[in-house]
């Protein structure tokens, strides 16, 4: 009797239980994001918004080539970082899932996550030390007599930004792929080989399609935040490594122009959302299956 009453109010109980977190998320995230959308249609004033609607901010963002150049560069950079990170991460996820013995899996995952949790700023700065003119790599190569002049292409360009971001997002790429690989029923692989497929063909026809849901998750979780990163471009990017987030930061923080900063943010988020949706749609056949 009481059980039926209990089940009847389950939805209410669940919603009530979730409400503090959901309300916090609405007030502190959803509402400010809506505010950004509103700001983007208002007139700029220094450090404040003049509540007169206008489309000038978007006209400026669309007509000034600097925004297109920076957004284009951010997208290319984020796509490169994502490709490099996910491709180098896949063998690691595969190694931990298929080769490491079960009792050692947690240790490997722990080892991979530790660098991610240690001071982000200092880690990025240390890449500057490693890649710089008098840096570790140049000193080592000159010491070995391989080169006679320090290499200058290591730092303050796209390469250094890609390398540093690939380092920062490594665990984000590894973990979703690992989770997808762990879910694969090992007997399917044996079946593939029993039916005469080679090891490589089994990988391409069985393992890879089943791991794609993890790969898609990795791609999104690396791509979306890297488009908006500005610490790494600022520290190791030099002038040719500036990204869209640098201009958002400039408009908001230095120029106090909230409406234009908001319009750039909205435009960038819009483009990123469209790309992500297309990517998920293109991979939709891999996304079904048991959750």
């Amino acid at each position: 009797m009481t059980k039926r009453k209990f089940l009847g109010s389950e939805a209410a109980n669940g919603l009530l239980m979730l409400s503090p977190t959901a309300i916090y998320s609405i007030v502190v995230m959803a509402a400010p994001l809506i505010a950004v959308l509103l700001f983007s249609f208002m007139t700029p004033g220094y450090l404040k918004v003049i509540w007169t609607p206008t489309l000038d901010n978007y006209a400026k963002v669309l007509s000034d080539p600097i925004y297109q150049v920076l957004l284009g560069r951010s997208l290319v950079m984020a796509a490169t970082v994502t490709a490099v990170t996910v491709l180098t991460a896949f063998p690691i996820a595969y190694f931990i899932s298929f080769i490491v013995s079960p009792e050692k899996k947690s240790l490997w995952l722990f080892l991979i996550t530790i660098p991610f949790w240690t001071s982000y700023l200092i880690r990025v700065f240390l890449w500057k030390v490693i890649l710089g003119y008098n840096g570790v790599i140049n000193e080592a190569f000159m010491g070995l007599g391989i080169i006679h002049q320090p290499m200058t292409f290591l730092l303050y360009n796209m390469n250094s930004v890609v390398l540093t971001l690939a380092h920062s997002y490594a665990p984000f790429a590894i973990l979703p792929i690992f989770v997808a690989l762990e879910k694969i029923d090992r007997s399917l692989l044996e079946a593939g080989q029993d039916l005469g497929e080679s090891r490589i063909m089994t990988f391409i026809r069985v393992t890879l399609p089943l791991a794609m849901s993890g790969v898609v998750a990795s791609v999104l979780i690396v791509f979306i935040p890297t488009v908006g990163d500005y610490v790494t471009p600022t520290l190791v990017g030099g002038s040719s490594g500036q990204m869209i987030a640098n201009v958002i930061q400039l408009q908001y923080f230095k120029l106090g122009n909230y409406p234009v900063g908001s319009a750039v943010s909205i435009a960038a988020m819009g483009v990123v959302t469209v790309i992500s949706v297309i990517f998920v749609f293109a991979n939709r056949r891999f996304m079904r299956g048991p959750q």
Binding site: A22, S25, A31, P32, A35, V36, F39, I224, P225, I248
Partner: peptide
């Protein structure tokens, strides 16, 4: 609702930062 709560995992930090800055100072 859970999707919304988990969104900050993929939302770039700079977007959260500017949204909060704008809302706090101007609203």
């Amino acid at each position: 609702l859970m999707g919304m709560i988990m969104l900050p995992l993929v939302l770039p930090d700079i977007i959260i930062a500017v949204a909060l800055l704008g809302a706090i100072t101007n609203i």
